[in-house]
Computed example of a mutant assay.
Amino acid sequence: MKPLVSAFNAWTCIVISLFAIVILSVIGSMFANGHHSMMGSTDDPTDGGKVATAVFGAVAVYGAFLLFCGSQAFLHRRQTSGGEIALR
């Protein structure tokens, strides 16, 4: 199987996805727990649970990106190490 994206793009996507998962998980947990920095103003949403659900949905999307890009990086590593069978 051949990779769909370049190795650079795959590793960039892995780094960005990991960063986004960590940051959005913290933000989502702050909304879920009603932290005062997220829910303390009059302009903030009133239902933190619904906002947390949306944020954790974004975490799931970034998790899917992470799986896809991780598989692409694995394919690049396997291709360059000679693990792929080539019929000539």
Rank of each mutant, 00 (worst) to 15 (best):
P3S: 12
L87T: 13
S25Y: 12
A52H: 05
A86F: 09
S41E: 15
V15W: 02
A54P: 00
P3M: 06
T46N: 08
F68K: 01
A32N: 08
A7V: 05
G63L: 08
V26N: 14
A52G: 06
A58M: 02
Q72S: 05
F19N: 03
V15K: 07
G70F: 04
K50Y: 04
F56W: 11
F19S: 10
V15N: 07
H35C: 04
H36F: 10
G40H: 05
E84W: 06
Q79W: 08
F68A: 04
M39T: 10
G48A: 04
D47F: 05
Y62F: 11
S41Y: 15
L24H: 08
S17M: 00
F74K: 11
V22F: 14
H35E: 09
F8V: 15
G82E: 12
G82V: 13
S37E: 06
E84H: 04
T80E: 14
A58I: 03
L67V: 14
G40A: 10
L87N: 15
L4P: 03
S29Q: 10
V55H: 01
P3I: 08
A32E: 09
K2V: 09
S6T: 14
V5W: 13
A10L: 13
A54G: 01
I23Q: 06
D44K: 09
I14Y: 00
I21Y: 06
T46Y: 01
V55W: 04
V26R: 11
G49W: 03
V51P: 00
G28A: 14
G57D: 02
E84M: 10
G70R: 02
K50G: 11
S81G: 05
G49M: 07
A73N: 02
L24F: 13
Y62A: 08
L18E: 03
G83D: 10
S71L: 08
A20G: 01
T80F: 15
S81A: 13
S17P: 00
